[in-house]
């Protein structure tokens, strides 16, 4: 592997100062399951790895039924799906964390790293988008927050400016009668990268017959994960019906701009967007219906 210096940062301000000083030759190390491979294969050149796992804020995992979830940037997947409160409140996020890599990867990799690695196929990002997650970013000029759908700007590129780091992700508490769902298509059963991924979150009325609002997001069909805004809006204030779901799936297909590569053709991916969007929506609706009244 290329040579680099390792720094175990103890505070957010220490990490930010180092990032600001070293520029793009410094990278944040959390779980390392992407970064270490990229450094080894020379896909990223770096002179500094700044380990953030000793910083308290990035290890926070706390849920409050009024204020929602604070998920530190370095919390690994296994802690998320081992947390009953998180599993109960955000099943769509849990769907993603249990399918990223295998057991050993989930012991290190986390949602924050998945976001910062900015892969178009990142499984955790559609759930964050549909759950209205906000990214808490620290930088030389203090803290700012941006919506999760604005975080990725291109493959491997994020909205983080020089000297900035992701500290945590905030997800609002779920509304009454709301549920989320994420699924992907892969040719294997596990240990694979999404050909297409689709997430949905849905809020139903008291009788669970009418959709109050919905959010749909897609992975692996554009340079970044996408929030399917029009498709989501089509479902607002409508009776649950196959027609409504089909219209939303069609609108989601309309924004997909997939490429053909070794995982699938553009045509197959566009088709899959329709299939997976329907399944994600129906999956989320079913979860609301399955909840005890």
């Amino acid at each position: 592997m290329q040579e680099f210096e390792y720094i175990n940062a103890k505070t957010v301000s220490e990490a930010v100062t180092l990032l600001d000083e070293k520029g793009d030759k410094a990278r944040i190390l959390a779980g390392g399951t992407d970064l270490i491979v990229q450094a080894r294969e020379g896909r990223r050149t770096l002179d500094w790895m700044i380990d953030i796992k000793s910083i308290p804020e990035v290890n926070e995992l706390s849920y409050d039924s009024n204020t929602g979830l604070t998920l530190g940037a370095a919390v690994p997947c296994y802690q998320i799906y081992a947390d009953d409160a998180v599993c109960n409140a955000y099943p769509g996020l849990v769907d993603a964390t249990i399918i990223i890599g295998g057991t050993a990867i989930q012991g290190r990799a986390g949602v924050g790293g998945n976001l910062c690695n900015a892969s178009p196929a990142a499984d955790c990002i559609p759930p964050l988008i549909v759950l209205n997650a906000t990214c808490v970013i620290a930088g030389p000029n203090g803290e700012r927050e941006i919506p999760s759908e604005d975080f990725c700007t291109a493959p491997g590129q994020t909205a983080l400016e020089k000297g900035e780091m992701l500290v945590s992700i905030k997800i609002p508490a779920p509304q009454q009668n709301s549920r989320s769902y994420y699924l992907r298509f892969i040719p294997r059963n596990e240990m694979d990268i999404a050909v297409v991924g689709a997430g949905a979150a849905i809020v139903l009325d008291e009788a669970k017959q009418r959709i109050i609002s919905a959010r749909i997001a897609l992975a692996a069909v554009a340079p970044t994960p996408l929030y399917a805004e029009e498709a989501s809006a089509l479902l607002a204030d409508r009776e649950i019906s196959d027609t409504a779901i089909d219209e939303a799936a069609q609108a989601a297909q309309n924004i997909a701009r997939p490429i053909s590569d070794m995982r699938g053709t553009a045509e197959q991916r566009t088709h899959l967007v329709g299939v997976l969007t329907r399944r994600a929506l129906n999956g989320a609706i079913q979860r609301v219906k399955d909840d005890a009244a």
Partner: peptide, 16 residues
């Protein structure tokens, strides 16, 4: 097994 969790030792730095 690192601190009770299964990991790939190729994806952990020795200094960690």
């Amino acid at each position: 097994i690192l601190d009770g969790r299964l990991v790939n030792s190729c994806l952990v730095l020795g200094v960690e």
